[in-house]
Deep mutational scan, measured.
Amino acid sequence: VSFKITLTSDPRLPYKVLSVPESTPFTAVLKFAAEEFKVPAATSAIITNDGIGINPAQTAGNVFLKHGSELRII
């Protein structure tokens, strides 16, 4: 599955597209996205474009099915 993750704390709204296997734990996606944007993973969260928080204790495939591919990291 592929996710387009936007960094909301930067006024330029940079984004990265990450492709991972469906079975990947979403905690790993969060950690990798945080490292890519050089923000601390421990204090970061991934939310939907509607501002709904995503529980990272599920697979990337589940997140994709529930929330789609466009996400934000805060």
Rank of each mutant, 00 (worst) to 15 (best):
L18S: 12
G51D: 11
N62G: 12
E70I: 03
P14N: 11
G68F: 00
Q58R: 09
L18I: 14
P14L: 08
V29P: 00
N49Y: 05
D10R: 04
V39N: 03
I73D: 01
F26N: 03
D10P: 03
L30T: 15
V63F: 03
T48H: 03
A60G: 03
I74H: 10
A60P: 00
I52L: 09
K31Q: 10
D10C: 08
V17T: 02
R72Q: 15
S69D: 04
T48I: 00
V29D: 02
A28E: 11
G51Y: 04
G51R: 03
Q58G: 06
I52G: 10
L13F: 12
I52F: 09
I74L: 04
K16I: 09
A45L: 04
A57I: 10
S9T: 03
P21K: 14
L30D: 02
N62K: 12
G61A: 07
T59H: 07
R72W: 01
A60R: 00
S9L: 12
V63I: 04
A28F: 11
K66I: 09
R72L: 05
N62W: 07
E35T: 09
P11Q: 03
E35R: 09
G61W: 09
I52W: 08
D50F: 04
L13T: 08
E70M: 06
V29K: 02
Q58T: 05
S19Y: 07
I5S: 00
A34V: 14
L71Q: 02
K31S: 10
A60N: 01
F64D: 03
E36P: 00
T6C: 06
A42G: 05
F37G: 00
Q58M: 08
F37Q: 01
I5P: 00
N62L: 10
E70D: 13
G51A: 02
A41N: 02
T6D: 03
H67T: 05
I54D: 02
I54E: 02
T6W: 04
L30N: 14
K38T: 07
K66E: 14
N55M: 09
L71H: 02
L65C: 11
Y15C: 09
A45S: 13
T8A: 04
L65D: 12
D10K: 04
D10E: 10
I73T: 02
L30K: 15
V63R: 02
L7A: 13
P11C: 08
V1Y: 13
G51E: 06
G61V: 09
I47V: 15
N49M: 07
A42M: 08
K4Y: 04
G51T: 01
I46M: 15
A34C: 15
K4Q: 05
P21H: 13
G68L: 00
T43L: 11
N55K: 12
I47L: 13
R72E: 10
E36Y: 10
I5N: 01
N55V: 06
I46Q: 01
P21Y: 11
A42Y: 03
L65V: 11
K31T: 13
A45W: 02
G51V: 00
L30Y: 13
T48L: 01
V29L: 08
G68S: 05
D10Q: 07
I46W: 02
A33K: 00
F37L: 05
F37I: 02
R12S: 12
P56L: 15
D50S: 10
K31I: 09
L30A: 15
A57T: 11
F3R: 01
D50I: 03
